[in-house]
Design a protein around this nucleic acid. Structure first.
Lengths: 256, 256
DNA sequence: CGCTACGTTGAGAACAATCAACCCCGGTGG
DNA sequence: CCACCGGGGTTGATTGTTCTCAACGTAGCG
């Protein structure tokens, strides 16, 4: 595992976002995912205040949006594509703390530096705002800060669910919970909830669920053999028996 | 394990906080831990606004402050004592998501019901505030809401650390990280950082670290045998080699 | 057409879980 | 005063889930 992970750690250094691709600000007024993002808390008439401090960047797949340890000057919104957030141990072990979809937020730091890295899973558009300037907007529009509090609170709740998953669930329960969560998230942003599309690799799923690639693969096969899911392709999962999947994900007694 | 956990699950039902012990509001102006709590963001001259909506309850050891699933009417501050937050699976498996010390906050809910339970580890004083009324105070004092955002953001960051711990660290690394965190937390609220006092049982530590009681016990013994810690009593740990403890906690390569 | 990255499958090893015995200590009652 | 009890903690023996190491399959791409 160490070799693989050390490679992964090095990867980010080379494919940084090239400055050439930076600016190109999007029009917030035409943003289709505004209602999903924290910007949605702002009255359309005040949207220019965000627009004024915001830049949209196009990020290629595999490029870093955030590097753990860097000075936390900006916060980010995913406008399109998808992003993984992760933390590394010195020997390369990786824990993905979340996958972001359009409308999702990242970049909050509590001690001046980012506590995690963020990397695009596919070509993505990211809106970035300097934290300093955003604070000024917050001062004029407390409703924005209130929305942010709601978002961060929700993320904390999701993180606590994930702790339960990582600390106490079996491999099959973890994968079941993961598939249901992805399905639900897709649904909420208007994407198909049932044949679930997974933009991340098996390695990413493993690093998210605290398992190895092999165990993830075996568990996919197991769920398929039991008729709970189907795998039309490696990135598409059909939930054929949602009831059993839910029972499994919640750790129904006797199902182990 | 199931028997033990099912017992544990039942426990809360009987020793609810008796209403007889409820009110007895403390004087916020004399609160020694205000600077640690979110109330500290409020100017002393406005403290009465919190005082007016706040009640202090005395909670005996083992009693519940919050029951997972209950309607989330109030938020809470720990004034004295200590509290564990935890989530349960239907078969009794338990994951403790955090231990609260004086000044700490809990009770945020995103969908109207609490997503976790809270139980006192020792006799504790808890300040409770109805969320509705607190929101009204927020409207007048955005600095309070800002402080709350900072607190929740910090908790999210801690939760992400815990995900890394639960998903990727070995038993020894988990215990080392736990001891260092408790030490640091004690230090921050002015308690001794070195002989660390642990108010929770081995079972609680296990449920926090995603391990079993036996593994926690064995790992304590292992760290002791290696001269990294000493165990003057079951609830007191002396960190005799902080350097090695830190290296272990951060997953120093080669230390496995 | 073959290379490479990603995914799957198999065999064996390892770490932590489980099952079980025992210890220690404080409380209780004879 | 001491024997008994029970909860919490430790230690030992064994099991089992997941990890590790390794081989093989598959699909996309130059």
């Amino acid at each position: 595992m160490s070799t693989v992970n050390l490679d992964r750690r090095r990867a980010g250094v080379e494919n940084e976002v090239s400055p050439a691709k930076a600016p190109a600000s999007k029009d917030c007024h035409r943003c289709e995912i505004r209602h999903l993002a924290f910007c949605g808390a702002l009255d359309p008439q005040n949207l220019d205040e965000i627009q004024a401090i915001m830049q949209t960047r196009h990020i290629p797949a595999g490029a870093h949006v955030i590097n753990e340890g860097d000075e936390a000057v900006s916060v980010f919104n995913v406008a399109s594509g998808s992003v993984k957030l992760y933390k590394l141990l010195p020997d390369g072990r990786c824990q993905i703390t979340g996958f972001l979809l359009p409308g999702d937020f990242c970049g909050i730091a509590t001690d001046g530096t980012y506590a995690y890295s963020a990397e695009a899973l596919e070509p993505s558009e990211i809106c970035s705002m300097p934290r300093r300037k955003l604070d000024a907007v917050f001062a004029r529009h407390p409703e924005l800060e209130r929305r942010l509090l709601a978002i961060v609170s929700h993320e904390l709740s999701v993180a606590q669910d994930q702790m339960l998953l990582l600390g106490r669930k079996t491999a099959a329960e973890r994968l079941a919970a993961f598939l249901l969560r992805q399905s639900g998230r897709n649904d909420r942003i208007g994407w198909p909830a049932n044949p679930v599309h997974l933009p991340m690799s098996r390695a990413d799923i493993a690093d998210f669920l605290g398992l190895t690639i092999e165990t993830v693969s075996r568990t996919f096969t197991k769920l398929k053999d039991e008729g709970i899911i189907q795998l039309p392709s490696k990135t598409v999962v059909e939930l054929t028996d949602r009831g059993r999947l839910e029972a499994l994900a919640e750790g129904a007694a006797g199902e182990r």
